[in-house]
């Protein structure tokens, strides 16, 4: 008996018999250099109705604390951070510090998450998480309703092809462009469905 695999591959072979297997390539165009790359990135992220602010490296912890205070009910709210975050978030639960990490149900009771990122894409206002150190498992940036994400200026690249070149495809990735949104009702975009409804991006300038 032929397997489905063999039969499908045989059909493919037969369908393409006599067809030139190497059609001409057409290299994708690249955008012209962006003069203010980080500023462009910040503008584009903001366009999705994310909150964007820029700070100096020395002010990072204070900026993140202020961001959390802004989005959480005064003096309350639980915050989760991934293992390996390069700065301190006082009072936060560290996911996976001891054991397998929080369950989905536990994460559902967490109010906010703070992470870093792998790459920022200026042209599209996209943050890419590759879920390495300082970014955590995919679930922690998904289930809590508020995401504070720290992107360093040197992580910002002009466009999608530059981002792909910096990323390791074997890692799981999440490309985030603004808060969760839908256009499913009358093609009218509204923010806030299943992913974090608040996205707060902190861009750290070098120095």
């Amino acid at each position: 008996m032929t397997t489905a695999r063999d039969e499908i591959l045989a059909r493919v072979r037969s369908a393409l018999s006599g067809v030139d297997r190497t059609p001409p390539l057409a290299p994708a165009p690249r955008i012209a250099a962006v003069p203010d790359l980080v500023g462009h990135f910040a503008d584009r992220v903001e366009h999705y109705r994310a909150v964007v602010e820029r700070c100096a490296a020395a002010d990072l912890e204070a900026t993140v604390a202020a961001a959390l205070a802004r989005h959480l009910p005064a003096g309350s709210g639980t915050v989760v951070v991934p293992d390996g975050l390069s700065f301190d978030v006082p009072g936060a639960v560290v996911d996976g510090a001891a054991g397998p990490g929080l369950t989905a149900l536990e994460l559902d009771r967490v109010d906010a998450v703070v992470t870093e990122a792998a790459v920022g894409v200026a042209e599209t206002g996209t943050i890419v998480l590759d879920h390495g150190a300082g970014q955590g498992r995919r679930a922690i940036t998904l289930v809590p309703d508020r995401h504070v994400c720290v992107v360093r200026a040197e992580q910002v690249v002009p466009d999608v092809p530059d981002a792909l070149a910096r990323l390791d495809p074997t890692r799981p990735m999440t490309w985030i462009s603004g808060p969760s949104a839908t256009s499913d009702i009358e093609l009218d975009r509204v923010e806030g469905v299943h992913g974090p409804r608040t996205l707060h991006v902190v861009v750290v300038d070098p120095g």
């Binding site: 366009h47 990735m173 462009s177």
Partner: peptide, 21 residues
């Protein structure tokens, strides 16, 4: 598709990632 520069979320995964997903 949606007339956006980029859609809100794109997920990629490559087989099984131990401890994640």
């Amino acid at each position: 598709s949606t007339g956006e520069r980029m859609n809100p979320y794109t997920s990629t995964w490559t087989g099984v990632t131990p401890g994640d997903g």
